[in-house]
């Protein structure tokens, strides 16, 4: 399953992902029109900073998602096609079990309409072959759209290449 991964070392905290998320979840999908929409378009990611560590956080679409497991009405469920954790507001009863179960705080309670909302992984975009809006908006590639296997493979290769360089230097010094 492809999802959004974060490389905090590249995040400048520009919040472009936050805006892209709100625009994507607006009715018009156009920033110049979205700002005039009522209700205001929601967003499901947050850029947070802690001790010099900046990152854009959102639902991790866990493989074994506690929110899906606890939802009593199956309002939160897994899309069979994309494997993303999505939701159906019509079924939500606002019990906030999902909010309690989520270890990341990825549930955004909509208190006006009394339903839980969360990142849908841009399910519709992904189905039409596009990448999530936040990833497209990220100017530094701090947000990466890939699957866990590829990401880890990439990290292994980049680590080994940097190690081999340092080993060579080490050998030369000796």
């Amino acid at each position: 399953m492809k999802k959004v991964f974060i490389d905090p070392s590249k995040c400048t905290g520009c919040k472009s992902c936050e805006i892209a998320c709100a625009v994507e979840h607006s009715m018009s999908k156009d920033i110049y029109k979205a700002i005039f929409e009522e209700p205001r378009p929601p967003r499901f990611n947050s850029v947070l900073k802690f001790d010099g560590f900046t990152a854009s956080l959102r639902c991790n679409h866990c493989e074994d998602a506690p929110c899906v497991a606890v939802c009593p009405t199956s309002a939160i469920y897994r899309d069979k096609e994309t494997n993303l954790v999505v939701y159906n507001s019509a079924k939500c009863i606002g019990c906030w079990q999902c909010a309690m179960a989520c270890p990341f705080g990825a549930i955004y309670p909509d208190l006006e309409r009394k339903v839980a909302r969360k990142c849908d992984g841009c399910n519709d975009r992904v189905k039409s072959g596009r990448i999530p809006a936040c990833v497209e908006a990220c100017p530094t590639n701090a947000l990466i759209y890939t699957d866990a296997v590829t990401l880890e493979q990439f990290k292994r290769i980049s680590t080994i290449s940097s190690l081999s360089k340092s080993t060579k230097t080490y050998m030369e010094v000796i």
């Binding site: 919040k15 805006i19 979205a34 700002i35 929601p42």
Partner: peptide, 25 residues
Amino acid sequence: PQCGFGELGVCCRMCYMGPCRIDIF
């Protein structure tokens, strides 16, 4: 997509307490 704060004019770089941005949503 270009910076939404810039597109809407709500990014202020006039001083070094900033740069500040207003959340339009």
